[in-house]
Simulated scan of single mutants.
Amino acid sequence: MAAASKTCLPNAPHVWMAIQKSLLKNNDFAIVIENLTGYLEADGIGNDKAPVRACHRYLSNRTGQLDYKGAIEKGLPIGSGEIESVHRYII
């Protein structure tokens, strides 16, 4: 989401990011996905140069796994995709 924030609000990406994080932590992922929609890169742009599309796809494909509010209430850690996929390297 950090790379997408630079496209969505280039003058203050940290502000955009903070708002989206707050929404995610409240399980308002549908709003975050909608907020990304207006900034989606054109289909002709390669995935390596389309951070908004990558973020949109990541969140859209994982809506069943985005219970950040529940995880926080249970004292469980939440993290980025990099942290969530670390299991590939630990075993």
Rank of each mutant, 00 (worst) to 15 (best):
L36C: 15
S80A: 06
D48Q: 09
L23V: 02
P51I: 10
Q20P: 09
S85N: 13
A71R: 11
L23G: 01
S60V: 11
K69D: 08
E82C: 14
S85G: 11
P77I: 04
K49G: 06
A42D: 14
P10S: 07
S80M: 05
H56V: 04
K6N: 13
V15S: 07
P51K: 13
A3F: 12
E34W: 01
G46H: 14
E82L: 15
W16F: 10
A3C: 05
H14S: 15
S5T: 05
D67L: 03
L24V: 02
S5E: 03
G79S: 08
V86D: 11
C55N: 02
W16D: 00
H87M: 07
I19H: 07
A2S: 12
E73D: 13
S5F: 01
D48G: 05
P51W: 14
K74S: 04
P10L: 05
I91R: 12
G70M: 08
G38F: 00
S22N: 15
G75M: 03
G64V: 05
A54T: 03
I33C: 02
V52S: 01
Y68W: 08
A3T: 03
K6H: 13
I72W: 03
L23Q: 05
G81K: 10
V32P: 04
V32M: 04
N61S: 11
Y58F: 10
D67M: 03
N35S: 04
A18Q: 05
K25F: 11
A12M: 12
T7Q: 06
I78W: 03
I90M: 12
N35L: 01
V32G: 02
T63D: 08
C8F: 08
W16H: 03
G64K: 08
Q65N: 14
P13T: 02
A2H: 10
T63L: 02
N61Y: 04
A54W: 00
A42E: 13
A18M: 06
N61C: 07
V32N: 01
N26T: 07
H14W: 12
R88N: 10
N35G: 01
L40M: 10
N47W: 09
G81T: 07
R57Y: 09
A50D: 02
A71Q: 09
T7K: 07
G70I: 05
I72K: 01
I19V: 13
V86S: 13
A2M: 11
K74M: 04
A71P: 02
D43E: 15
T7H: 08
D43Y: 01
W16P: 00
A30T: 14
S5W: 01
Y89P: 00
Q20C: 10
N61F: 02
D67C: 04
N35P: 02
F29K: 07
N11D: 15
I72D: 01
T37G: 12
Y89D: 13
E34M: 11
Y89K: 14
L76I: 03
G81W: 11
G81Q: 08
G79P: 00
K21N: 09
E82A: 13
Y58E: 09
A30N: 13
A12Q: 12
I19W: 02
R62C: 07
A71F: 06
P13F: 03
L23F: 01
V32I: 07
S22V: 11
G79Q: 04
G70V: 06
A71H: 07
A50C: 03
K49H: 12
I78L: 03
I31S: 06
C8V: 06
E34T: 11
C55I: 03
